[in-house]
Write a protein that binds this DNA or RNA. Structure first.
Lengths: 260, 260
DNA sequence: TCAATATTCTCATTTTTTGAGAATTTATTT
DNA sequence: AAATAAATTCTCAAAAAATGAGAATATTGA
């Protein structure tokens, strides 16, 4: 292992449980000589990806906060969706969390979340946490709208799966037909998820808008109302995205810019 | 340039103005052959630091959201300060934004912000945005409490500066004596900043808690009240930090863990 | 001040990276 | 559906950089 992989490996050591590392510990965990790790860490510190905390302990650095802000400010999905989430939690009239989640490479991740004022529970889905692909309304509604090729890559080809796989395929087909997905206690016991797709192929955006609420407080009419709310909010976000992308605000290669 | 620098250089291309890049554009901007940039970008995409959006356009990737969450969850300063900020904006009884900011390498950056409910203005200080070292209460109060050696490195030695430099030195000494700093319209016109230091040397934390409010709405007694609020909140956060760090929750090198 | 520990440095060797262009894949247009 | 254009990957020899062991140095705490 060398080059970028080395940097990756060091950063991946940091997680919720182990948020502070000494160089000898990293060296030990990675099976790489200390002198090499010192060099790698020095580069990462210089780039702001790690910071020297104290007593030779290192933590994740400010670059992540900085890039995260950039992402929040410039991600078209975040821009288009923030307002919608606000409206959704306001109009839900029940304790809930609204999420905008998105397929990134091969995982689903929430990119914006907003809780209603009086919400005491916490959803496992939260901004920045990778979520399982095949569980929860949020993820399923995304899977259901994936191009066949991509879906096969993510969950395997239709044939080479057992009964559970076939069931998932059927469920996804059903979700796709309905245009939304409702689940209960799939991610968090006692919590229901209601999700609708936000698909803007032209922008390469495959996402979902979802609502998490206490399942025991939902009767059928409530549920229908919330589904309607989520579905319409999701299509609104998709519409806004399409509109926003019409004049592509991207940096073109120089030779193209010159032509203008 | 090579190795880590190449990755850094690519990532640093992304900012508020240019949030989406094609490979030819990057190649052009960096003066590096396309084939090399393609390789670099491929690595960054694999690591989640970039994502292929559409039409060969790349954006910042989900890894930043993920690491940012990790940072929020595990940074002792964030953990100790979140509640305090909440209390501060609640007790300020005026539209305001409360910030917890910190010295990272050689820049000041806000790591948590919270606005009071009825706050319409926005402070330039916001989570994830690097701020000037020598302007604004938030930064000054941090500078004022830096060890001499570090301060010299950041703003230059006492002798080799002009009149402005000497004035800054005097101001910092004064702030240090008082234990807080109040400024007006230094960062944003019409906004006042009130900051107090959060220093926990044992943890390598040099930070500040600050409040940004509409200067025209503050009379002297208001200002005194808010200074008191900020100063006491800051010392509370520092206290909590010291307490939290007593049993050092860090990953020790293996040979130390074995001894236990 | 003195230990103990952390960090950087040195340098020959090994391993990558690099870049130019060809080859291939992918998307778009006709 | 073929043709065109663009994007992306591949190839390979030369050049550059990373590696690791240990020495040298800096930093820190007692």
């Amino acid at each position: 292992m060398a080059g970028f992989a080395r940097f990756q490996a060091v950063l991946r050591l940091f997680d919720e449980k182990a948020s502070a590392w000494t160089v000898p510990a990293m060296s030990d965990a990675l099976g790489v000589p200390a002198s090499t790790v010192y060099r790698t860490v020095r580069d990462l510190v210089a780039g702001g990806f790690l910071e020297a905390a104290h007593e030779s302990v290192y933590r994740l650095g400010s670059a992540f906060i900085e890039y995260d802000r950039l992402l929040r400010l410039t991600d078209p999905l975040v821009a288009a969706g923030r307002g919608a989430l606000h409206d959704v939690v306001a109009q839900a009239h029940t304790p809930c969390v609204a999420l905008l989640s998105r397929l990134y490479n091969d995982q689903v991740m929430c990119v914006v979340d907003e809780a209603a004022r009086d919400t005491s529970f916490r959803s496992s889905y939260e901004r920045g946490r990778p979520m399982p692909l095949t569980q929860g309304a949020t993820s399923k509604v995304i899977l259901a709208h994936l191009p066949a090729r991509l879906l096969n890559r993510l969950i395997g080809a239709p044939k080479d799966g057992g009964a559970r796989h076939a069931a998932l395929r059927r469920e996804l087909a059903d979700i796709r037909k309905r245009g939304f997905c409702v689940t209960a206690s799939e991610i968090d016991a006692g919590l229901a998820g209601i999700a609708a797709p936000v698909i803007v192929r032209e922008a390469g955006i495959i996402a979902s808008l979802s609502l998490v609420a206490d399942d025991s407080r939902l009767d059928d009419s409530q549920r229908r109302r919330l589904v309607l709310l989520v579905v319409s909010a999701a299509s609104l976000v998709a519409e806004e995205l399409r509109y926003a992308l019409t004049p592509p605000a991207i940096v073109e290669p120089r030779h193209k810019m010159v032509k203008q």
